[in-house]
Each structure stands twice: as structure tokens, then as C-alpha cells.
Amino acid sequence: MVKRNVSSLLLLTGLLVLFFVACAPERPDDLTELLTDDLISEEMKMTDEAVGQMISSVPNPVEMTILLQKSNVVYSQDLLNPSGSISNYNTNFKKALNLGVYGTDLVYMNIYDRTVSTLSYLRNLQNLADGLRIGQFFDYETLNRLSESSRNIDSVLYITNRGFDNMTRYLIDQSRSSIAVLIAYGTWIESLYIATKVKTHPPNKELINQRIGEQKIVLDNMLHLLSNYRNDPFFEEIFLDLMDLKKEFDNVTISYIYEEPVMKEIDGKIVVIDNSRSEVNINDDIIDGISKQVEYILNKIIE
């Protein structure tokens, strides 16, 4: 009896050993080249810093949206990027751009107090940020909770904006400034798109058109930022598209009148009195042209 059990034990052990042998071979990590290739160049480092300085000039969607709201523009869900499109964004390039797009959408929804709709957009932001390995910057729990109560829209906006700011800075610190640029670009294009598509009447229309015209300045900065990455075919493509937009904006003229600004102390704070002025020369045709090109660019981004 004992002999029987010993032999069956041996048999089983043998099977086990076989198992181990069959499954032991470890997949070799032929990732050594990834760990040894020397791809650093000094140039990039310089660009990171410069990018960091310039990227803050890309306007925050809050300003544009506040203007729209003040101009009694009606909220329109159709202008936003559908939440479900996210499943199409597989590359970092696409993810970053659309992170910006959805960011603007989120701000838009919050300012118009459409907090219910924000949930899936928040989830999208989280998803895309995770994909880009920058998910640690959004306290989604807090955002969610805050969204539920409209009195905290200001806090919501604060946290969102601060999150984007931190994200941008982190990316630059991590030498991933290209991603930061794409996010900023996405944010900006979406705001511009919404601004060019809304229906308004004078006198609000004038204000909005003026603001659109002023984006000409941003566009130049944007081109400057994008030009750093033109060796990448994807960047090249959006650069060229932006150049086409520039052509439209070339029709916009801005005139400046310079005055000496004066700094005054009033009630323990510094107040500036500046009589310098700028005037934007723009008409509906130009707006149309801009609008079409913006739409074209945006559609490429969000497809």
C-alpha cells in the first residue's frame, strides 16, 4: 500500500516538474535598445523651457466662454465633441489634442451650469489623461462631488484650470512638452470653434467677433510653438493646417494706439491706468472664412 502511494506521489511530482519546465521559459526582454539608445539632444532641452514660457499665452477657455455667456449666447450641446468619440483616440497625439477639446467642453458645460452632462466628460478626461500617463492631476472625486452642487461652479473651474496648469507644467518638466502643446492647441481650437459657431445678434455679435479677431495674436504664438515639432509628420500636418488658418486671419487687421500707462496705489493695491487702445477690423465674410477653416481643423482632430 505504501509502495503504491509512493509511486503515485512520484508520478505526480514528475507531472509537476513537467509543468514547470514547460512554462518556465521567461519571455526575453528585448527592450535593451529602448534602454540604451542615446536620443537626448540639447536642443530639446532649450525648447522645453521656451515652450514653458510661451504656453501660458494660449488663452484659457474660461475667458472666451464667459464672454459668450455674458453675450447671452444660448447653450448648445451640439457644438461639443461627442463623448463617445473617445474610443477612437488611440495615439498620444490624438489623446492630447482631444484632452484639450474635452477640457474646453467641460468648462463650457460648467459655466452654463450643465453639471449633469459633465460626468461622462470627466470620465473621458480621466481616461485620456491616464492614457497619457498624467492622470494624477485631476482629483476626480472632488470634481465629481463639486459638480453636483451648482454653487461651487467657481471651485470646479478653479480645480479644473489648476489641474490643466499643473499638467502642463509637469509635462514640460518631464520633457514631454509636445504633449502640453497639443493639449493647449486642442483647448484653443475648440474655444474658437464654439465662438465661430454660435448665433448672436448685435451688439453682442460685435464683441464676439472682436475677440475672434484678437485670436490672431494667439495664432502666431501657436505656430511658433508647433514649429518646434515639425519633424513629426503629424505635427507638420496640423502646422500646415494652421498656416491655412493664418491666411484667413491675415484678413483681420488690428490697429494699436499706444499711451503711457500709469501705476497708482489705491487702497493698498496697485491699479494701472492705461489709455492704450487696440481696434480689430473684421467682418462677417472673414468670420465665415475663419469658421470654415476652424471647423475643418477641428473635424480632423476629433474624428
Partner: peptide, 25 residues
């Protein structure tokens, strides 16, 4: 255009308020 530190008095101010009429960099 403005600064939060007055060199003469050595005072630091908490903020600058700036009503803008000229859009730009």
C-alpha cells in the same frame, strides 16, 4: 506696466489691478 514692489517705500503689494483696453502680448 506695473509691479508689486515699490522700490522707494520697500512695500510689497498683494495684487495689481489692470483694466485692459489694448489686446495683445
Amino acid at each position: 506696466i506695473a509691479t508689486t514692489y515699490d522700490v522707494e517705500t520697500g512695500r510689497h503689494f498683494p495684487y495689481i489691478e489692470y483694466p485692459v483696453n489694448m489686446s495683445g502680448r
